[in-house]
Computed example of a mutant assay.
Amino acid sequence: MKKLSGIFILLIAASCKVFGQDAPGLYDAGTKPQLVAKQFSFTEGPAVDRYGNIFFTDQPNDKIWKYDTEGKLSIFLDSAGRSNGMYFDKKGNLISCADAKDELWSISPKGKITVLLKDYNGHMFNGPNDVWVRPDGGIYITDPYYQRDYWTRKKPDLDGQKLYYLPKGKHQAIIVDDKFVRPNGIVGTPDGKTLYVADIGDNKTYKYDINKDGSLTNRTLFIAQGSDGMTIDNLGNIYLCGKGVTIVNPQGEKIGHIDIDEPWSANICFGGKNRDILFITASKAVYTLKMNVKGVD
């Protein structure tokens, strides 16, 4: 029996190695990402509302699109401030990194725009890139510098590329970490206690403890890999974007990879009525993948 058990264990290990990306059971073996549409210039910033509808940007064309739970595409907002990363707050407002003028916006369900941040101590932001809203309404913003062809300026107005925090109801951001080469993707846990931030310029992703006042402590290297956009599932796995999608467990170990047949996978979120549809913005296209896990708010 010992010999048979050993053979059985070896067979299981071999299968996990062969099927690699499917081994964790996060999605069914053989399931592949499905192309939704390929009519855009560069897609970014997917965010899911309380109903499971997904909103994403086509930044070069300055539009925010809606992909509803029935699979229908429509334009939610034209002249969208060159929106990049986005996230919904608990009131149903879409918080957007609008880098046409390097601002942070709040967009109501009816499309009304409120500017939350327009500068830091009188200096233009580099270009707010990605955002995560914690449960109490506080907002974390990554601010790398990527030169845009629609800007008149040719250099940063600020010293360094940093991570900022905007407390709920406040109008001035606070620097919570300035030790980055180029911060980008960001996501937090639904209990509001842990934050993940990717330094795509240094090919690293960090993990922090979130304090009640919004400050961060216990900065630790989560994985030696950067990311564009990021999301998290209900098992605590982190999904990193770039060349396809890399799945990392809460211990910082790679447990899967989703190949996307596009030059770059920029961002990602879970959506759908049951939050079990992985939605990926990839270059000129958007894709979906049915999952066996769900996203979290």
Rank of each mutant, 00 (worst) to 15 (best):
K38S: 14
G45H: 06
K72F: 05
I12T: 07
T69E: 06
K112S: 10
A14Y: 09
S108W: 11
Q59T: 15
N61A: 14
Y27D: 06
V115R: 07
P24A: 12
Q39H: 12
W105F: 14
I54P: 01
G20M: 04
D99F: 11
L117R: 00
C16N: 14
F8L: 13
I9N: 02
S15A: 15
K17E: 11
W105M: 04
D68V: 02
W65E: 06
T31Y: 10
K66Q: 15
D58L: 08
S74T: 15
S96W: 10
G25M: 09
V36T: 04
T43C: 12
K101C: 01
W105S: 04
Y27P: 05
L116T: 03
K110N: 13
Q34V: 13
S106G: 11
S83I: 08
G111D: 13
A98L: 08
S41F: 11
N93L: 00
V18F: 06
A23C: 11
S41Y: 12
S83K: 09
E103F: 08
N84E: 07
E44R: 05
G30C: 01
E103Q: 15
S108F: 10
K66T: 09
F56L: 09
Y87T: 00
R50W: 02
K112C: 01
V115W: 03
Y27K: 08
Q34Y: 04
W105H: 13
V48H: 05
I107P: 04
S96I: 07
A14S: 07
A13Q: 15
G20Y: 12
V115H: 03
F55Q: 03
A47K: 05
Y51H: 10
E103M: 09
K63W: 12
D89T: 01
L77S: 12
G81T: 06
K91F: 02
G45K: 01
D89Q: 01
G71P: 02
L117S: 00
M86K: 03
Q34M: 10
S15Y: 15
G85Q: 05
V36W: 02
I75C: 14
D62G: 03
K91M: 06
D22K: 11
G52R: 02
D28I: 05
K63T: 15
K66F: 08
Q34W: 01
G71E: 09
